[in-house]
Structures are given as structure tokens and as C-alpha cells.
Simulated assay, not measured.
Amino acid sequence: MSYAGIVLAGGAARRLSGVDKPALPVGGKPLLARALTALADAEPVIVVGPERPGFGDVVWTRESSPGTGPVAALAAGLALVRTELVVVLAGDLAGVRKSTVDRLMAALGRASGAVLVDATGERQWLLGAWRAEALRDALPETVENASLRRTLGGLEIVDVPEEPGESADIDTPEDLDRFS
């Protein structure tokens, strides 16, 4: 089944002093490269954020107002999606794998989305497979600074329990130390 990929890679990284999180090396590989590897079967892969050299065959785009949150970034990426299905990933995921994406796609069925649920039972909104039309329909009129949970929470969602470490992301210096 064909699907597109969207990687949201434009956050401010306030807890990491504004560093370019997707470019941070974890295990010798930039975080963005980890997301792109997980999306190996996606066509196209759209990265929403500042263009970075060395990431090959991806489509780059930006929100109309950069820095206005993940819903605005999602809207920018969705504008370029022509497939029925799309996998949406954050650009700071240290533990995401191709097998993660494969499990999300397999779980989607007829639902609007399939979202990874971490070990504490929390949905990881930026780790999911979706019907593109359901995402478009869920977008609020004003996407800037909108709540991602509020935007997507009303959709019919299949929860996919994570395998150990799949939802691990880098938000703090301690996270980076733990995975480096």
C-alpha cells in the first residue's frame, strides 16, 4: 500500500537552547536521518522545516508562519500529499524504526489514524499513520498555534502499543546524554 511521509522538523528546541534537534547525532546518525530511514517505503517524504544539506531525495516545505506549532507544520506538509495515506513523524525521534511505521500502517485498517501509545499509555501524536483526508478535515480554520491533541483527538484512532524505546525522543540535554 503506497503512502507519503511527513516529518515535522522545525521546532524551536527551547529546552535544548534552540539547537537544531533534527540535526543532532544520536548513535552517529542525525535524528532526521532516523525518521527518513523509518519512512523508507514512503513516496514522497516531505520534511517541514528549514532545508538541511545531505538528506537526499526529500521534499522541503515550511509553514506559512514558521514557528507556529505542529498543526501549522502538519497543514504545510499535507498540502503536498497526493496519496490516500500518510505517516507523520516528529523530527526528534531517537527510537523510531521502519518496523514502527510498518506496524502503524498494518493497524490502520478503516480507522482515521493509528497512533503509537507509549509505555505510560500516552498517545504519541507525532508518531502515526493517517488517512490524509481525515487529517485535512480535522484541521482548524486557523492552524497557527492550534493544539495538536485537540485537532486530532476527535478522529477514530487505533492505539498501537509501542515496542520498548520506539517513542523515545530528544527534548532535553538529559535525553541526548541517554541516547548518545
Rank of each mutant, 00 (worst) to 15 (best):
E84W: 04
V86P: 14
L93K: 03
L116S: 10
A75L: 08
V117T: 15
R82H: 13
A106W: 02
L139N: 09
D118Q: 13
W125Y: 12
S65W: 08
A111L: 06
A114R: 04
L126T: 06
A76C: 07
W130M: 14
L127A: 13
G91N: 07
G91T: 05
S112V: 05
A72I: 08
G109N: 11
L127M: 15
R103I: 05
E133T: 15
S112G: 15
T100A: 14
G95S: 09
T100L: 13
L104M: 11
A119G: 06
A79W: 00
G113T: 01
D92T: 11
L104Q: 03
V115P: 11
T100W: 13
V88R: 14
A107H: 06
D118W: 00
E122S: 14
V117N: 04
R136H: 11
L74G: 04
V58N: 04
L93F: 01
A138P: 08
Q124T: 11
T100C: 13
A134S: 15
P70E: 11
A119L: 04
R123N: 01
S99C: 06
S99F: 01
D102H: 06
T83F: 10
L139H: 03
R103V: 03
V101Q: 14
T61G: 09
A134F: 03
A138Y: 01
E122I: 00
G113P: 03
V86S: 13
R62I: 03
T68R: 15
